[in-house]
Simulated scan of single mutants.
Amino acid sequence: MADKDKLFSVSELAQEFALTTQALRFYEEKGLLLPARSGRARVYTYRDRARLLLIQRLRRLGFSLEDIAQYLSMYGAVGGGQYQLGLEKIQRRLGELRSLRREIDQTIDELQSLEDEARQRLQAAASPGTPPRQE
């Protein structure tokens, strides 16, 4: 049997991706994974595994489940629709992260200023008779 023909159980896939079986069921409920059945057991194909890998990657990058579902629903679309949609979502996410980085940089600068001021005041308090510097 080729690797692409291998079937994975819920527990195998959950363990491989460090997820709970409930997380896999949640992805199924959201329509992100569509496992086959072998008797009463759910089994996952190589394609399901690849989808889960992509889902996890996109989640880690901050994409919503709705964004991921929309992207996955376009799989195999004619004319590159999936890639165009993906590009738009990537550009939006990059914009969000760049904005967040600016906010974080401003916060770091403000905290650094407060830290410098606190150090100066501590130094002045440790040296009686020396007035604290005013900035």
Rank of each mutant, 00 (worst) to 15 (best):
62 G>W: 01
11 S>T: 15
64 S>N: 11
94 L>Q: 06
134 Q>K: 13
3 D>G: 05
82 Q>Y: 03
62 G>L: 01
16 E>G: 05
38 S>V: 02
24 L>D: 01
62 G>I: 07
108 I>K: 03
21 T>N: 11
41 A>Q: 10
120 Q>P: 03
42 R>T: 05
75 Y>S: 05
27 Y>T: 07
40 R>Y: 03
5 D>H: 14
3 D>C: 03
119 R>Y: 02
129 G>T: 12
107 T>H: 00
45 T>S: 15
51 R>P: 00
4 K>Y: 02
73 S>K: 09
41 A>E: 03
59 R>L: 11
69 A>V: 05
43 V>N: 03
36 A>G: 08
131 P>K: 08
99 S>D: 11
30 K>S: 08
135 E>D: 07
59 R>A: 02
95 G>R: 02
4 K>C: 06
42 R>N: 04
6 K>W: 04
77 A>S: 14
29 E>L: 09
49 R>E: 10
20 T>G: 14
54 L>P: 00
92 R>K: 11
21 T>S: 14
68 I>P: 05
84 Q>R: 13
14 A>L: 07
80 G>E: 13
44 Y>A: 05
5 D>V: 09
51 R>L: 14
64 S>L: 13
75 Y>K: 00
81 G>E: 13
72 L>M: 10
119 R>S: 01
81 G>Y: 00
17 F>P: 07
86 G>R: 12
31 G>T: 09
58 L>S: 10
102 R>Q: 07
128 P>G: 03
124 A>Q: 10
128 P>C: 06
103 E>I: 01
6 K>A: 15
83 Y>D: 02
131 P>T: 12
124 A>F: 09
14 A>Y: 06
124 A>H: 11
83 Y>C: 00
78 V>A: 15
10 V>H: 05
133 R>A: 14
106 Q>V: 00
7 L>M: 13
1 M>K: 08
47 R>P: 01
106 Q>M: 02
24 L>W: 02
30 K>F: 00
52 L>P: 05
66 E>N: 09
106 Q>W: 02
43 V>K: 00
30 K>Q: 13
45 T>P: 06
131 P>R: 06
91 Q>M: 04
59 R>V: 07
111 L>I: 06
8 F>G: 10
117 E>R: 04
49 R>L: 10
28 E>T: 11
76 G>L: 11
84 Q>L: 08
124 A>P: 07
25 R>S: 09
65 L>D: 06
74 M>Y: 08
10 V>G: 02
38 S>C: 06
